[in-house]
Amino acid sequence: MPLTNPWLAEPMPAGRMPRERLEERIRNLLSSQNMCVLATAGPDGPLATPVRYYSLGLAVMFTAAPRSPKVRNIAADPRVSIGIFAPLVGLASSRGAQLFGSARVLAPADPERVAYWEAFRWESEHAERGRPVSEPPRDTLVVLDPVRIVYTEHWLRRDGFAARQFWRRA
């Protein structure tokens, strides 16, 4: 029987992508999706929360209520993992990333927030909530600048690269 994607057959390639190409693939994934699953650890155990996010480079950010369980968990232990994936229609389309690091909760007055906030597309969320788009929100911003990323894309096998690639902050 003919294979639609013969490059998916064994053996699996083991090649590593050059760092610049890998970062480009990761940025493409982050900028083409808008939902992730944030994993935190709390007093009752793990918490996996779907959140709408925005990206800036390899950083992922989202707003959160200061008293939400995810923010309480981050305050107690900032180590988080974020999972992002594209819709799956078959093995050839499998594409996603796991980002690891310490999340930072930036209050509205935090000067670090400005650099991230410019990339945050808050207007559509404001419109959904019936808020005026003339006034930017003063919400708490959660940012993950990852220290490690595990990127998976089976299409990479076509070019002799392993489907799973590993990135670490330099």
Rank of each mutant, 00 (worst) to 15 (best):
L99F: 03
L38T: 09
I149K: 03
L56N: 14
K70Q: 09
F85N: 02
T40Y: 09
L29C: 09
R164E: 14
T40R: 11
P137I: 03
V80M: 13
L58I: 06
V60F: 01
F161D: 13
A39K: 10
P13F: 15
T140V: 02
A86Y: 02
Q33M: 07
R25M: 05
W155K: 04
V142H: 03
V133Q: 14
T49Y: 08
A107F: 00
P69A: 14
P18W: 01
A163W: 05
Q98T: 15
F120C: 07
R158G: 00
A115T: 06
V105K: 01
Y116W: 04
R158K: 11
L56Q: 15
E135N: 00
E24P: 03
D110Q: 06
E128D: 08
Q33A: 11
I82F: 02
P13Q: 12
E24Q: 07
A92E: 15
F161N: 11
A59Y: 01
A119V: 03
R95I: 08
A65Q: 11
A92R: 12
L99V: 03
A170T: 09
R104F: 00
W122M: 04
S93R: 00
P146N: 07
Y54S: 05
A119Q: 07
S68P: 15
M1G: 13
A86C: 04
S124Y: 12
G130P: 00
A103N: 03
P6R: 06
S31D: 10
R138T: 10
I74T: 12
F100T: 09
A162G: 13
Y116H: 08
